[in-house]
Design a protein around this nucleic acid. Structure first.
Lengths: 261, 261
DNA sequence: CTTATTGGTATGAAACATATACCAATAGCT
DNA sequence: AGCTATTGGTATATGTTTCATACCAATAAG
């Protein structure tokens, strides 16, 4: 590895070792809780398990849990109520006017596009792998989620109900995660989970209604995996994520295109 | 989210929050150093920067660096010599007989195949993206690495020299990382780095000679990216990783096929 | 108005990390 | 031989984080 080469000029990375960012336990705890909420495991209005239980589940002292709770409270993600029937309650994200929403989305555009590309890479391949490895229980699980989702976007009224939208997004995340799980690859599974959790922050609070065809792609993806048609599964997944990208773009103010994509 | 559904049966994950694994600073430091070695930024026989310098670079106290050094020393990854011209020296991995090697590889097969699938997902897409985003400096960097690699596997004698093999693997990792970098997506870049680093532990110590065509795929990938032919870039990358898989399989004892792939 | 549930507070011990200073081995130079 | 520069090894005092435990305070149900 000689010096002054194109390699070294391009990458400042030669012979450099990344600096240490040791996450404190309470930060990791906050991340994990945030992730569970982002994936829709806990919906707005739901209560998290009580602190003492979280402490056990997460293998960390209650003190640490409480520090994490302070963080999430500060972010406006949960509220804390004392007393019996109190607890840690997941908040509903503030509903933004469509102008604010567009402006907000715009600041996040580059990140969102990166996440969508990352999802495309991993989820298309996951769909492909899943064709060869899915079991009947995977199919059952996917079918059930399809049912749930179609119920949630069946009528126009429901498609504009914030609570239904949250439930739909949760089932959607679970659907994609189940495919990644069926692919039987932990690295890809983790990547898909990370990507979905990362998307929630920018977009989870942004959809004000579901499209009536929101579930159509899921049906075709499911059919392809059921029929073990890997090429089709990959293709449909790719189209699905492209459609997600498009519907996000439609929420943007018209002048808001970046140099991306 | 009702109970007893197929979803909940399949995934123990509903309403469960991951437990906290807070890495201590010295573990993170050890990881970062290990990763740099795995990516070939430091080759066997090279010295790491002195402890005091690592301490500065990595933004952590010397005490912490020393704990990390103890870990890596214990793993046999580095040796420590005192005195002037002493320091932290990267060790050459023990050379295994081909029987031991096969047995070792076999225990790691499942992991290796997972990593290769993860690489396929991310690197094929990275190659595709890179076609649209690569700059001239990316191409220069890739070309230089091609030159380095072809020099390192030009003659039969060189292809069996352990030192050349290490250098080749380092350039190889850098080549793939540069493509990921050219793709301009941090998530994919990190995934590619993680995957390459994770592969090194099992296989870095396993190649005893380079094939004379070891660099052929790299040339075609480079050409496709240079010509901005996304389909070809993706296809060639896919073939390249498949070839890697195949040459690893050839190192296995004949009876060692798992249920994978 | 008692009881069960849940968050809030306090405290001391253990582990971890830092900063600083100094010791010890080693190679090269005079 | 001995000085010097470099580098790892050791010691210590301090501050922060995390933990385990115990107890306090608010709240709703019976």
């Amino acid at each position: 590895m000689q010096d002054n080469s194109a390699v070294d000029q391009l990458n400042a990375r030669a012979r450099t070792i990344e600096s240490v960012h040791a996450a404190a336990a309470y930060e990791v705890a906050a991340d994990n809780i945030r992730r569970a909420i982002a994936l829709g495991r806990f919906l707005p209005g739901d209560k998290l398990p009580p602190e003492r239980e979280l402490s056990e589940q997460m293998q960390v002292s209650r003190t640490t849990i409480r520090e994490a709770v302070r963080v999430l409270e500060g972010e406006g993600l949960i509220t804390v109520k004392r007393g019996a029937l109190g607890g840690l309650v997941v908040m509903r994200p503030p509903s933004l006017g469509s102008a604010e929403m567009g402006a907000y989305l715009r600041t996040q555009l580059r990140l969102i596009y990166e996440i969508l590309d990352f999802r495309t890479a991993n989820e298309c391949f996951a769909a492909r792998l899943a064709c060869g490895r899915r079991t009947q229980s995977h199919l059952d699980c996917l079918a059930e989620l399809l049912g749930t989702m179609s119920g949630l976007c069946a009528q126009k009224a429901k498609r504009e109900d914030v609570s239904n939208i949250s439930q739909f997004l949760a089932a959607d995340a679970e659907f994609h995660l189940t495919i990644a799980h069926a692919a039987g690859n932990k690295l890809i599974g983790k990547a898909v989970g990370d990507a979905h959790a990362a998307m929630f922050m920018p977009i989870g609070r942004v959809f004000k209604r579901l499209e009536d065809r929101a579930n159509a792609h899921h049906e075709t993806i499911y059919a392809a995996i059921r029929d073990q048609d890997a090429d089709r599964a990959e293709k449909e997944m790719s189209l699905h994520i492209a459609a997600t990208r498009k519907s996000l773009r439609n929420l943007l103010p018209p002048n808001a295109e970046l140099s991306n994509d």
